[in-house]
Amino acid sequence: MTEMVEQKELKVIVFQLVDKEYAISVDVVQSIEKLLSITRVPKTPSYVRGVLNLRGVVTPIVDLRERFGLEVKEMDENTRIIIVTLKEYEVGLIVDAANDVLDISIESIEPQPEVVGSVESDFILGVSKVGKRLLVMLNLTKVLEPVKRSLSDEI
């Protein structure tokens, strides 16, 4: 009976970019780090801020604001780097703030509303209403696919 309940809910990390809240499954999140020293890598897309050595693993770092075509801002004490693992690679995502860990009902996830001209729309799985909050569910595979390609081209 417990397995049925678990399948109906998804545990997510909620983070902020500008004035929107986004969510990704905790299954892919390795850690959430405060601002760390990032080393720039030449010939990578502008949204790839560089790499950092995190506990002996060299991890590429992506600025999600820049990836989504949003206004880039200076990092501050609220800035976090969410380390995610997808299949065989690990990537850090720079976000404005990491807010919560929530359980959301899978049934509450709706398809993304059609928004013409939204740069980030290709990266969205759907949206979920949690109380008065609207969470944008990210498709990390699409967000990170060019990062994986550009880094393998450099190696």
Rank of each mutant, 00 (worst) to 15 (best):
V51W: 06
I83G: 02
I124T: 09
L86A: 00
G69H: 08
G126A: 10
R80P: 06
K87A: 04
L125H: 08
K132D: 14
D122E: 15
T79M: 02
Y89H: 10
A97K: 14
D103V: 03
D122K: 15
D100L: 01
K129S: 13
V95Q: 01
E77G: 01
G117Q: 07
K87D: 13
T59R: 10
R80K: 14
A98S: 09
D122R: 14
I106D: 01
A97Q: 14
G126S: 06
V116A: 09
S46Y: 09
S105W: 01
T39G: 00
V58M: 02
V84C: 08
V72D: 00
E71D: 04
L64M: 12
V84S: 07
G69R: 08
V57W: 03
V116S: 11
A97C: 11
E71R: 03
P60N: 00
L134T: 11
P42I: 13
I61V: 15
Q112C: 13
Q112I: 11
K34Y: 13
P60L: 02
E120W: 07
E33K: 13
I94N: 03
V95S: 03
V58N: 04
T79I: 05
Y89A: 07
D100M: 05
T44S: 14
S121D: 09
T85D: 03
D103C: 03
I82K: 08
S118P: 01
M75H: 12
A98N: 01
V101N: 03
D96I: 09
L54S: 04
R40Y: 13
E107H: 06
E90P: 01
R40L: 11
T39D: 04
E114Y: 05
V91S: 02
A97Y: 11
V127F: 10
T79P: 03
L35A: 08
N53K: 12
V101S: 07
F68R: 07
G92R: 10
I82S: 09
V62Y: 01
T39F: 00
S121E: 12
M75I: 13
L64V: 05
